[in-house]
């Protein structure tokens, strides 16, 4: 079912939905950018269409809705662990096709890997319904088409935002009631981006040859990468976390175990008790990330982790292009071992 709504009608719809759902969308955080007087776009709860930034790509991904940066696992006293309560209200998340496909990557890790489900992720994840934001144009650094993540049918509703009005497609019958008396019926279906300016050739090798791990192509990243971790924090599919226990300052007998996002680029990611760690060079970390995104994960789950949202390239302060790195890798593999010497 399709509908055409004015912005006012859409706000009425959001108002009705808000009675039963927490509604998350990319929103502008004014003057909260890295540089003074610049903005960032990230996810938060919204109530009006005017708050939703549909004209630009969000700086940070919607994974924050199901993977909070900081998440309490347990509260504890000296001898007892207690799980925190979770908000049980269902959520609607406005997001693009690449990000919807990104959630599928997160699901693989948190709900499938090792045959166990992460209960904290699951509780938040199963509350979420997707509202697809149709992409009008491909943004800078997007390469969703190359990753096959430009399309999806995994959404409850699809929305085409426009200055004049908003077209939507409803797929989820549970939401039908909210649309009963709003807007004009039509047969709207969302379009998907068919071509990006950036094209990535993901290597299609069954096994990475040994030599590529130490190939000189990674060396440039030793000095170019500053191990800041922005490529990981803005990525919709990066799922790693670090757990730690904290004690409350006023009473150090009680505290909590929490987890925070971890980054495979940042120092200490592989460090063990006693201080020994792996991948000291930033180039090795780049290789580890790239392989995870377009090779290792695929070997394990039969799907590439990366969805080509391009946020890593949008946000790298050192202008390292991950997408170009994949292309370099592909070329190296084609040239073969000889070229590496």
């Amino acid at each position: 079912m399709g509908k055409s709504l004015s912005h006012n009608e859409f706000n009425v719809l959001l108002g009705a939905l808000a009675k039963d759902y927490n509604i998350y969308a990319p929103a502008r955080f004014e003057k909260q950018g890295r540089f003074s007087d610049t903005d960032i776009i990230r996810y938060r709860q919204v109530s009006q269409v005017e708050e939703i930034v549909w004209q630009a790509k969000s700086t940070y991904s919607p994974k924050e809705v199901v993977m909070p940066v900081t998440q309490t696992l347990f509260y504890f006293t000296q001898t007892e662990y207690r799980e925190p309560e979770t908000d049980t209200r269902p959520c609607l998340v406005f997001l693009r096709a690449c990000d919807i496909n990104g959630f599928a990557s997160l699901d693989k890790i948190y709900l499938e890997n090792g045959g166990t489900e992460d209960i904290y992720y699951k509780r938040l994840r199963e509350k979420v319904k997707f509202i697809l934001i149709e992409c009008h144009t491909s943004f800078d650094n997007c390469f969703c088409v190359s990753m096959g993540a430009n399309t999806t049918d995994n959404y409850s509703m699809a929305v085409r935002f426009g200055e004049e009005n908003i077209q939507l497609e409803l797929k989820d019958e549970q939401l039908a009631g909210y649309l009963d008396n709003i807007g004009q019926g039509n047969d709207f279906k969302p379009q998907f981006i068919q071509e990006n300016k950036i094209k990535v050739n993901v290597p299609s090798v069954a096994e990475m040859p040994d030599w590529i791990y130490n190939d000189q192509m990674w060396k440039q990243y030793d000095h170019r990468c500053i191990a800041c971790g922005r490529c990981n924090t803005t990525c919709v599919t990066c799922s790693c976390y670090t757990a730690l226990d904290v004690l409350y300052d006023d009473n150090c007998q009680v505290g909590e175990r929490r987890r925070v996002w971890a980054s495979c680029h940042i120092d200490g990611f592989t460090d063990m008790a006693g201080g020994h760690g792996f991948r000291k060079e930033n180039g090795a970390r780049m290789r580890f990330k790239v392989f995870h995104k377009i090779y290792d994960f695929n070997k394990r789950f039969g799907k590439h982790m990366c969805v080509g949202c391009g946020r890593c390239d949008d946000n790298c302060p050192e202008y390292i292009s991950y997408s170009n790195c994949i292309n370099i890798l592909n070329d190296r593999l084609k040239e073969g071992e000889k070229a590496s010497v």
Binding site: Q32, R34, R42
Partner: peptide
């Protein structure tokens, strides 16, 4: 600190 922060945990008071 704002320049360094990879998650926008640090921002500037507008």
């Amino acid at each position: 600190c704002v320049l360094q922060c990879p998650t926008s945990a640090w921002t500037r008071n507008p």
